[in-house]
């Protein structure tokens, strides 16, 4: 009995000690930020019109997601999200389902770079960031979703809608420690027609593909694609995504125009020639289609079997016409 008490005490002392050690850990990103504030960042910013839903027991997931969706122009109550993100057996919500459910409401869900400067840049540009934190310790985790909506350089504080507190102000260093224990995970849900300020084009493209595969609203997707093409006008893959979206929704002439623009921009980009051929097949312009299929075969590359099939299909169609 006595031994057990001693063992319990030792474990508790170890736990408290571990806790204190964690507190002593520096917050490297905060320190760097406060000593060398980026010129691109304003001294303070708070995103306006971020709704607030006080969470109910264990349900920070639905509350935080409803907050982020609300800021993105989707009005939804946390209660409506419980069935989609809450996992009763874990008394919580998974990051993956937060992302998937955000998408199911027709929003691009973008995972930001794991850095405070990316987080603040998004907030400064009007995009609140839904974050995962571990409010406890690595050995005794307390996972929590909240929404970062503001910051202030003078006080070195962040402003969050978190749990049952609206406008919760927390020291940058404290936040960084809790965020670091959750691998600096954060997502932002821009409104259609906007792309996150810190986004990378390849990851935006993947997020768009995921959105297209889950809910796939043509108008919303078009707005995201056009914004992305505006930002990265030289990247053919984004233009291809937009043209493929038009083709998939039977806008053949528009799709053909979009593919033609890519061909003008990058004359040797085989995927654009190949897909343009398909738009032209739909428009009944088989000679033009054959020309572009031949170009695709000529330039080849990773998808060369596809190009060969396209050319074959056109040859058959022309033979049938005669």
């Amino acid at each position: 009995m006595r031994d057990m008490r001693v063992a319990t005490r030792l474990r508790l002392v170890a736990l408290v000690f571990a806790g204190l050690l964690t507190a002593c850990q520096t917050a490297p990103q905060s320190r760097q930020l406060t000593s060398n504030w980026p010129q691109s960042l304003p001294d303070a910013a708070v995103v306006a019109d971020v709704p607030f839903f006080p969470q109910e027991l264990y349900q920070c997931g639905p509350a935080a997601l409803a907050t982020a969706l609300g800021a993105s122009g989707v009005s939804v109550h946390p209660d409506a999200l419980v069935d989609q993100v809450f996992v009763p057996g874990r008394q919580g919500s998974f990051q993956i389902e937060m992302v998937a459910t955000g998408r199911s409401y027709n929003r691009l869900v973008y995972t930001i770079e794991p850095s405070l400067s990316a987080l603040l840049t998004e907030v400064a540009n009007g995009n609140p960031v839904l974050v995962l934190q571990n409010l406890g310790l690595d050995s005794l985790p307390q996972w929590h979703f909240a929404v970062v909506k503001g910051f202030e350089r003078a006080s070195s504080e962040l402003v969050l809608n978190s749990g049952v507190i609206e406008d919760y102000r927390v020291a940058l260093t404290v936040f960084e420690r809790t965020w670091a224990r959750a691998e600096h995970w954060g997502i932002t849900l821009p409104e259609p027609g906007e792309i996150p300020a810190t986004a990378r084009f390849d990851r935006v493209l993947q997020s768009l593909v995921d959105l297209e595969n889950t809910s796939g609203d043509f108008v919303v997707l078009s707005e995201y694609y056009r914004a992305a093409i505006n930002r990265w006008s030289e990247e053919p893959e984004l233009r291809m995504g937009y043209a493929n979206l038009q083709l998939g929704n039977d806008f053949y002439r528009e799709a053909a125009n979009s593919y033609e623009q890519i061909v003008l921009l990058r004359p040797e980009y085989a995927p654009a020639h190949n897909n343009l051929a398909h738009a032209l097949i739909e428009l009944g312009e088989l000679d033009e289609a054959a020309y572009h299929a031949e170009q695709a075969v000529r330039f080849g590359g990773e998808f060369k079997e596809i190009y060969a099939n396209t050319l074959q299909q056109i040859t058959r169609a022309r033979a049938a016409q005669r």
Partner: peptide, 18 residues
């Protein structure tokens, strides 16, 4: 192994338990 965000109310209960 995935974390499941539950929140501050849970944290309060956790601290009480400690």
């Amino acid at each position: 192994e995935m974390p499941a965000g539950e929140g501050i109310l849970g944290a309060v209960i956790g601290i009480l338990v400690i």
